[in-house]
């Protein structure tokens, strides 16, 4: 089975090492990607959706028609892209009148939206199409003893009516994927708290980020593991700027799941960009050669 990757703006430009980690690790699991030309911003579920929801549907539907033409499901690797493309895909499949309205706009530039494919976050595809065991089989260097505080983020799970990935209050998908690579998933009271990224007032997300980082530290986790570049922004760079503001050093390394998978598959820190983070992560990995 082939999949169309949709990396979105942040991963393509700001965090290309996440894209590199996703491409390499998924290839090792056996997933074949077919790249499609012409994708734009998903568009983002916060700013662009706040601007005009009909236009948000339209731009997202245009992206979806490109994938429909190629004939494979889309895999997303950013929770924002996941939120936009999943919601628009479902809304247009469910609401014929809305689909007609959007297709009227798309007529000028290309094919209409048909509703023939699905959109899924890469972690969902790993769990459901390949299986946790298949992921575990690719591991050459189990991350034994690595305590990873899980941060699910909001848009992988909610709205559950649309996402249909896991129980939004008791999710297990990331725990299972971490266990598959030998790491120890750590839950804390704020595992499911939002990073606050979308708030227009700094003080609210600042409080959320500080509380979550403190909770991670209290559990003595080695790092925080997540699957969304926006959350990553909030906790990595955000941790530094917030620390300056508060006169405090959190020193919680933040890692994207596919970087961890890459390390477990035997890749170097540089290959998955773990040398690029604002909060240094090198201390937490045993970088001795992989046990083949």
């Amino acid at each position: 089975m082939k999949y169309i990757p949709f990396f979105g703006c942040m991963m393509t430009i700001k965090y290309p090492w996440f894209e590199a980690a996703v491409r390499r690790t998924l290839a090792n699991v056996g997933l074949e990607m077919v790249d499609v030309d012409g994708f734009t911003c998903c568009p983002d579920p916060i700013y662009f959706q706040a601007r005009d929801k009909i236009e948000w549907y339209t731009v997202a539907a245009r992206n979806l028609t490109l994938a429909e033409a190629a004939g494979h499901d889309v895999i997303t690797t950013c929770s924002g892209c996941t939120a936009t493309l999943s919601e628009v895909n479902l809304a247009l499949k469910e609401d014929q009148k809305l689909k007609q309205q959007i297709n009227e706009r798309l007529k000028e530039i290309g094919p209409e939206f048909k509703g023939t494919i699905n959109v899924r976050h890469a972690v969902t595809v790993l769990r459901d199409d390949f299986g946790i065991d298949q992921v575990a089989k690719t591991v050459k260097r189990p991350l034994e003893g690595l305590k990873v505080a899980v941060h699910y983020g909001c848009h992988l799970l909610k709205p559950s009516r649309i996402m249909r990935v896991d129980d939004p209050d008791r999710p297990t998908i990331l725990n299972k994927l971490l266990e598959a690579i030998g790491a120890e998933p750590i839950h804390h009271d704020l595992t499911l708290l939002c990073c606050g990224r979308a708030c227009m007032t700094d003080s609210i997300p600042n409080q959320m980020v500080a509380e979550i980082l403190d909770a991670v530290k209290a559990q003595q986790a080695d790092c925080m593991g997540l699957i969304c570049p926006s959350c990553f922004d909030e906790f990595d760079l955000g941790q530094i700027t917030l620390g300056r503001k508060l006169g405090k050093k959190f020193e919680v390394p933040i890692v994207y799941y596919f970087q961890l998978l890459g390390i477990a598959q035997g890749m170097s820190l540089e290959e998955v960009g773990l040398n690029m983070h604002k909060v240094k992560v090198d201390k937490i990995f045993d970088t001795s050669p992989a046990r083949a």
Binding site: C9, I13, P16, E19, C41, P43, D44
Partner: peptide
């Protein structure tokens, strides 16, 4: 900020600014 960020979809097709640094990093990877 809403207009400023969302306008970039119209002008650039994306919301993150393409830099030469990004191009270089992609090539390195």
């Amino acid at each position: 900020l809403i207009g400023k960020v969302s306008d970039t979809v119209l002008t650039d097709g994306i919301t993150t600014k393409i830099t030469s640094l990004a191009e270089r990093r992609r090539a390195e990877l």
